[in-house]
Every structure is written in structure tokens, then in C-alpha cells.
Computed example of a mutant assay.
Amino acid sequence: MINETALLESKTLRDSVLERTDVLDKVKALSLLPDGMHVTTAMVAAYFEVAERAVNRMAQRHRDELTVNGLRILRGEELARFKGDTLSLYPESYPQPRSSLALWSRRAVLNAAMLLRDSEVARQVRTYLLDMEYLARTTHSVDNPAEAATQSLDDRIDQRITHILGKTVVPMFNALIETSGEHRKELIALRAGVQRVEQRLRQHHARLQRLESPHEGRPLPGVMASMDAMNGRTFEHHIAKLLRRDGCTNVVVQGGHGDRGVDIIALTADGRRLVVQCKRFAPYLNITSPDVQKFVGSAKVLYSAEVALYVATCPFTPEALSIAASGGITAVHRGLLEEWSAGAPLEILE
């Protein structure tokens, strides 16, 4: 099996897998601009969990390759049209660029995953791509292609491991070793090689399960992408739906003019007064300490809340988290929101 670092070195190999843009959301949800097709450099950096300057350096080194795969630099009239048609829809979430704006297609983002050396997310994307390539090569010779297409990936790997290696090849070598004298050492060496292959396949299987399963520390793909596409009001109603799912009652969405800094009021399942502030911001922005301070006043003074949630589609600054903790506010940051939306309950509501 080709090592994942090969993608860093071989443009030919990168080109061969660029159609598999769906793996981006399988590894981690990729947020898009309101046009539903592009991301900015800041959003690329947020996805790969690296500094924006690291993405810019990589883009400068590989500009020709990335341009072929959808990287565009908007300037002048083209930039003005994009700002007016797209970014102006959500002025709070997407800061307006000055003289130029880099737009990345999903294909260009996948290309970036095969060029960023120091991103753990990019490494996972490369690993997933090569797992798929390996699986395609090892299953192309099945007798019934139609049946193979309907089998799950895990079923095919399990069948290959269990029936070919575990129940056929290794026992055969055991029998030959018992009855052979002259070639005993060679057979033992061959058996060891087969057992190494079996172990590698098991590791491969486990890795695929981690990548495919929503229950192994990573929620369902697309959860955050769908929320990033919502407007503020739709997002508030989405949070209200999660509250009802977790047993809250008397849930009222009141976000808007005159809400006094609280978007949702409710009662928890055990009767405690609950208030929620909802912020649908771009994932590369942050909730700051002044934001949380204002909510502390609204939640505790104006509403006398016993449970207060500040729910955001972006991270909180360390100072904001500290103020939230001292003020009795539960900060539901982007990662926690993803888990909550995918089915995990919030501890404060239990």
C-alpha cells in the first residue's frame, strides 16, 4: 500500500484522486461561503487547523497546480460583484476584503490537503484517499461486480481477512510446516509474511471504521456544513429543536429586536429556567469576552436564569471561556455544537 506521504511528492498521484472531494466532509465538515461552492483562505486554514500564513505559503509554492484545480484571485470589478452578490448577504460573518480575495473550490481544498505537510486534518484526508485507492485495487477482481457494488466496504474487508487469510492461508502453512523438513524455515518465513499482511488489513479496516463511523469521536459528516448554510433565524430554530429533543419544555424562540440579549427561553426537563444566546458566525471568527459579558448580564440579571447557554458556530477566545465559566455560562463552541447536533446530549441539560 502506498504511504500517505507519497501524495506530498507526486503530482501525478494527486491528480489521480482529485475527483474524490467528498472525503473532505467524511474527515471533517467543510464550511462554504453563501454561494455554496467556495471558501476563503481563512476558511481553508480553519478547516485544516493551521495558521492562515501556512496556507498562503503553500499556495505560493504551488500556485499553478492549485489554479488549475479551482483557486481564483478576485480583484477589481470581479471582486466588487462577488462582495455585492455573496458576502453582503452575511456581513457579520464574512469580513469584507479590501483589494483582493482568494476563492478556493472544493477541488482546490482537496488539492491543498495533499500539499500541507504539518496539518493533522490534511494527513487524515491523505490517509482516507489512499485507503479508498487501496480498496479499489484489492477488490477489482471479484467475480460478480454488481454484488460487490452493493456490499459494504467493511463486509468485503472482513470477508477477505477471515476467509482467505485467517481460515485458509495460515492453516495451510501450519500444516505444511508440520510435515516439511527441508523447507521448514522458508515456510515459517512465508507464514510470518502472510500474518503481517493480515495485521495490515485489520489496521486498514479499523482505520476505515474510524473514518466512516459517526460514533467513534466524530459526528456525522455535513452536520456543521448544514448549520453554516443557515441564516440566523433558522439557526435559532435548529437550537430550539435540539433543546426539545433533550427534554426541554416551554421552548420559545424570541430572537430579534427587543430580545434583551437572549434568543431562546425554556425550561429544562427537571424544571430549571433556561436561556440561550445563538450566534451563527463563520468558523474562523471568535466569540470574545465582551460578547459573553453582555450575555452574563442578560441571563443572570434580566432573566434570573438557572441554566444559560451561549451557542456559537465558531470558537470562543480563552478569555471568553474564562468569563463564561466564572459567570455560570455554558459555552457551546463549534466542536461541542457539532457533537450535540449529531446526537450527544449536553451535560448541563441532563
Rank of each mutant, 00 (worst) to 15 (best):
D270W: 15
R81W: 02
A112S: 11
S213D: 12
T21V: 05
T317V: 11
N286P: 06
L153W: 03
Q159S: 12
D118W: 12
Q151A: 13
K167R: 08
K241G: 07
R273T: 14
L130R: 02
E77W: 11
R57C: 04
F173K: 10
A320K: 05
L24H: 06
E19V: 03
A108Q: 07
G271L: 06
F173A: 04
L129D: 01
Q151Y: 09
G222V: 05
M230H: 10
R98A: 06
S326H: 11
Q60A: 15
R202G: 13
A308P: 06
L24W: 06
H237E: 15
Y310H: 06
I188Q: 15
I348W: 05
Q277R: 07
R106P: 06
N250H: 15
A51P: 05
V55C: 13
A189D: 12
G193M: 14
H163G: 06
R57Q: 12
G256I: 14
H183I: 12
V121T: 14
R273Y: 08
E92A: 12
L130T: 02
T313R: 02
A266C: 14
L30M: 07
V23R: 00
L220E: 13
H204L: 12
V252N: 12
V194H: 02
S88L: 10
A189C: 05
E350S: 07
S213N: 09
L336A: 00
R233L: 15
L337H: 00
L165H: 07
R98V: 12
P318L: 11
K279D: 04
Q209K: 13
L135Q: 01
H205Y: 09
A29T: 07
V27W: 00
H237T: 15
A308Y: 05
A59K: 15
A308I: 13
P171M: 01
T288Y: 10
H238K: 10
K185G: 11
L220I: 07
P95Y: 03
P221S: 02
R20L: 04
R123F: 11
F316Y: 07
K167E: 04
S88D: 12
V292K: 05
E133G: 01
H163R: 10
L33S: 01
E65H: 09
F235C: 07
L285N: 04
V253L: 01
V301C: 10
E133S: 00
S298W: 02
A342K: 00
V292G: 03
G36C: 01
S298G: 04
A42T: 03
L187Y: 13
T234N: 13
Y303A: 09
I164L: 11
L285P: 01
L309A: 08
S105T: 09
